[in-house]
Simulated assay, not measured.
Amino acid sequence: MTAPIEVTDSDKSAQPEAVLQGVSRKAIQGRSLGRIAWMRLKRDKVAMAGGAVVLLLILVAIFAPLIVKLLGHPPNEFHQELVDPTLGKPYGSFGGISWDFLLGVEPGNGRDLFSRIVYGAQISMLVGFLATLVSVIIGTVLGVISGYFGGWVDTLISRTMDAFLAFPLLLFAIALAGVSPNELLGLSGNGLRIAMLVFIIGFFSWPYIGRIVRGQTLSLRQREFVDAARSLGARSPYILFKEILPNLVAPILVYSTLMIPTNILFEAALSFLGVGINPPTPSWGGMLTEATRVYSVAPHFVIIPGLAIFLTVMAFNLFGDGLRDALDPRAR
């Protein structure tokens, strides 16, 4: 027979009721999924560095006129007195870099390279973001419809995706740019070119995100919370907008950050081939085209636009990879 356990004064002081009397009654706050993702993202220094570069590029694109007014010269203003008329090479070292021309001047005509890089960022960001927005909207809508309803709707949309993926997009863009009119729907000049690039890139790229959204929807429609909503009498529009779409935000957001640099590269490639932005409006791809004719006397004219494209694409990719890891519910 065991002896009774004696309760001492120290044991009494450790009772939960006594402990709680001296503790603040402040409610314990839970952490939302967004806050958890932000805490994970902050721990990824590489992704945060990429996000900082992306934010800087966006600010440069938005405030391009102000930046050029303070630190540069008009992008299409010639400074031929800074260029050797015989060789076409800028005077001075490193392409004529000085306090007045931060990145030097273009060979031949002496235009401010810094100003043209800044305005080129404006074109690249505009086309990249708008084309991504178009493809995300179309791909999300059709992907959700295809994955949720299934049957002949899924078959029709899936075969349409296959047809778009098999389409020679680059050849189509070159052909369309060659036959496009000078004015259409009230747009002309580079405004029409930008709208055409957004249409080509965005409208023909939606199957990439559409397939991802369709696959996620096929998985989500079998989950318990969707069955619970159906059992309570919820209709399809409610289930799509209130149950399925909120769970698709993370993959859509991650894939969008990876599509933007792809679209920027595509715009630069079209401008490099001469079917993108019309000169003299600056674009990074168009600057590389002009640089191929003078790279032997001014190699900086090739390096600087190429480096701008490289840093932009790298920053978006690093940020997208970090965002994907932060939004992964299985990550620790």
Rank of each mutant, 00 (worst) to 15 (best):
G276K: 02
S236R: 03
F310R: 01
L240M: 09
K242D: 03
P280N: 08
D321G: 09
A268Y: 07
A298E: 04
L307A: 12
Y295R: 12
G233I: 02
I277Y: 09
T312E: 12
A308I: 11
A298C: 11
K242W: 04
P279V: 07
N317E: 14
M287W: 03
F310S: 01
F301N: 04
S271E: 03
I303K: 01
I304N: 09
F266C: 03
A250W: 12
L240W: 00
A315N: 04
I304V: 15
T292F: 13
P299N: 06
L248T: 14
S296R: 15
L270C: 03
A234W: 00
L288Y: 01
S296V: 12
L288V: 02
I239F: 00
T281G: 01
I252T: 00
H300N: 13
A315G: 03
K242Q: 13
A228V: 10
A291G: 06
T312I: 14
G285S: 08
E243S: 15
I244Y: 00
M314G: 06
F266A: 13
P282F: 11
V297Y: 08
V249C: 12
I239E: 00
L258F: 10
P282W: 11
L273W: 03
P261E: 04
A291H: 05
F319T: 11
I277R: 05
I260C: 13
G320E: 07
V249W: 13
V226E: 00
S271H: 07
I309P: 01
L318F: 14
L307Y: 02
P251K: 09
V297P: 02
G285Y: 08
G306N: 10
A229K: 04
L265D: 13
R235L: 00
A268W: 04
P237C: 07
L273I: 02
A315R: 07
L273P: 04
M287I: 04
S236C: 02
F319D: 05
P251G: 07
I252E: 00
P299M: 09
I264H: 07
P305F: 15
R230D: 01
G306H: 06
D227C: 06
G320D: 04
S236G: 01
P237Q: 06
V313D: 11
V313Q: 11
S271L: 09
L240Y: 00
A228Q: 09
A298Y: 07
F316P: 05
